[in-house]
Design a protein around this nucleic acid. Structure first.
Length: 561
RNA sequence: UGGGGAAUAGUUCAACGGUAGAACAGCGGACUCUGACUCCGUUAAUCUAGGUUCGAAUCCUAGUUCCCCAGCCA
């Protein structure tokens, strides 16, 4: 069961159908299923399907099954099975005892295939794959009947049993449904029900040497489980007549119906298992859980809360029109959740040293900082102030443009929770790069307010040079440079700056306490971050989940940091 | 040129013969010890052409554009 959503679930055409079926008493309970093939990791596109299927079951008081569509042992692995279960749970859904596999039904599917043969509705075809392709016809021309199409029932039965017994090599024969080689719908041109595959199946081992096709297995599996609404993506729309054909020609225990919706697409993102697999295998990313990946594992490691993902899915709705959702929509959903929950901390990503000349050497003091501006119960913490500090390099400009509110020579700003400071002098290296600022502070502004009421334009985050902790910070940008990347040429579109490693960041000591808790934090004025599992006791690694909205970056035309 | 789908603000989704609305993005402003958050305001759409109707995004006709299908993948 998912945690309660802050906002009610949306309405969509599928929920309307479910409601109508319930109203018309066509069903008493709703049963849906999420049917992943364990040949890769789940991604954000699957999250849409998961939220739809589990969400509907929950809202209408029904149930949702997790069913592995494991009909192709040449592509499926146990690692993926485990990852899928982990990811669905993390997303916030529970299938209870309703965990199934298409392979649970192999024997029944096989018997039904024999039934079809006996009824003269299926036959064993000896044609080569090429010959079959050639006789299938084209989009505009009908196909031709196989020379084996009128084989006697007894011979079909014998050959099919021998296929099962493993007497023939891979590809030697297939079992096909006898439907209509002239159909305008190519799925109905005598589709393959079984192919010979001498392969080791993650669950059934070498017990089988023939495996059912997706089309043959899916609807019947639905029927066995009593699925009422079998929800899938648009590309299966023209498989529906075949889905129905099997259910109409086999003595199935229930009669499910298939409905199709448009899959999710996101700007700057490719959601194709083939491409994601290649990204991993080709070493373009660190793994399936690389935070640059749109996988649930990657998003989780990046720090995206499951709640934000669910909320995002709810916002984008469900329809039948192909669409591409703006990544900004996703970022917004993430920020919305994190803004409410994340504790505030200070961290300097690209440090620039400042020395407070009128602050006593060898001295430091504690100041109080609040942990969450909108949640007093989050409490406060102490932060250390001293003579030598770090501020963000981007917060200083020697020759600032008009609207630059931050530090520049002669300018006074506030250091958050601390004092007003004024930049007096810029120390540069040989290349003319500022390496240190000499500043003064006003002791009367302790805590951040001036008794004389004078204002400053900016408040900067900072850390103590002595007390802060050196850390690594990893910033993430879109994996692809193009807003609509082409899956066929993805390699040339990979963004070389998708991962930016900041090796010399300095974070306030509070971030080094509390061990490796994955809790999300906000680095003030920067974004939301979480601890990466690469962190070690002496070396913390933070991932930027998403940056804060940055109006200044837009105004200044700076590239997104 | 066969079969199956889809077209509404920049984007995603509503409106189910009766005032075209929301969210995100954008723009302007208020507030602010985060150029964040929050709040206020605002720009902006029915693929085209006919028809039916008192009234059409919705129904009809004809077009246009886009997506999917010729795996022994799912």
């Amino acid at each position: 069961m998912a945690v309660a959503e802050a906002t009610p679930p949306g309405r969509d055409f599928i929920r309307d159908i479910v409601q109508a079926d319930l109203d018309a008493k066509r069903h008493t309970t709703v049963v849906t299923r999420f049917p992943p093939e364990p040949n890769g990791y789940l991604h954000i596109g699957h999250a849409k399907s998961i939220c739809l299927n589990f969400g509907i079951a929950e809202e209408f008081g029904g149930r949702c099954h997790l069913r592995f569509d494991d009909t192709n042992p040449t592509k499926e692995e146990q690692e993926y099975i485990d990852a899928i279960e982990r990811d669905v749970r993390w997303l916030g859904f529970d299938w209870g005892k309703h965990l199934f596999h298409a392979s649970d039904y192999f024997e029944r599917l096989y018997q039904w295939a024999e039934d079809l043969i006996r009824a003269g509705k299926a036959y064993v075809d000896d044609q080569s794959q090429d010959a079959m392709r050639a006789s299938r016809g084209t989009l505009t021309e009908p196909g031709r009947n196989s020379p084996y199409r009128e084989r006697a029932v007894a011979e079909n039965l014998d050959l099919f049993r021998r296929m099962r017994a493993g007497e023939f090599p891979n590809g030697a024969r297939v079992l096909r449904a006898k439907i209509d080689m002239a159909s305008g719908n190519i799925n109905l041109r005598d589709p393959v029900l079984y192919r010979i595959l001498h392969a080791n199946h993650p669950r059934t081992g070498t017990q089988w040497s023939i495996y059912p096709s997706y089309d043959y297995a899916h609807g019947q599996s639905d029927a066995i489980e009593g699925i009422t609404h079998s929800i899938c993506t648009l590309e299966f729309e023209d498989h529906r007549p075949l889905y129905d054909w099997f259910l109409d020609n086999i003595a199935v225990p229930s009669r499910p119906h298939q409905y199709e919706f448009a899959r999710l697409n996101l700007t700057y993102t490719i959601l194709s298992k083939r491409v994601l697999t290649e990204l991993v295998r080709g070493g373009h990313v660190g793994g399936w859980d690389d935070p640059r990946m749109p996988t649930l594992a990657g998003l989780r490691r990046r720090g995206v809360p499951a709640e934000a993902l669910r909320d995002f899915i709810r916002r984008i709705g469900v329809a039948k029109a192909n669409s591409v959702v703006d990544m900004a929509m996703f970022d917004h959903a993430v920020r919305e959740v994190l803004n409410k929950s994340a504790r505030r901390r200070m961290a300097v990503l690209r440090p620039l040293k400042i020395v407070i000349e009128n602050y006593p050497e060898g001295q430091s003091e504690e100041l109080e900082a609040i942990n969450h501006p909108d949640d007093p119960s989050a409490g406060t913490r102490k932060i250390r102030f001293g003579r030598e500090l770090y501020v963000e390099r981007d917060d200083f400009m020697e020759n600032p443009p008009k609207k630059f509110y931050r530090l520049s020579p002669g300018k006074e700003v506030r250091l958050r929770y601390a004092y007003f400071v004024t930049c007096r002098e810029v120390i540069k290296d040989g290349a003319g790069e500022a390496v240190e600022l000499r500043c003064t502070y006003d002791p009367a502004t302790r805590g951040g307010n001036a008794p004389d009421g004078r204002k400053v334009q900016a408040t900067l985050h900072w850390v103590s040079a002595e007390h802060s902790v050196a850390s690594e910070v990893r910033l993430y940008n879109p994996l692809f440079m193009s807003p609509s990347p082409d899956a066929a040429n993805f390699a040339t579109d990979i963004n070389p700056n998708a991962l930016e490693v900041l090796a010399d960041a300095r974070v306030e000591p509070a971030l080094a306490q509390g061990g490796n808790s994955p809790e999300a934090v906000q680095f003030e004025r920067q974004g939301y971050f979480c601890l990466d599992p690469d962190s070690k006791p002496g070396k913390l690694v933070f991932n930027r989940t998403v940056g804060l909205r940055d109006t200044w970056a837009k105004v200044s035309g700076a590239k997104g940091a």
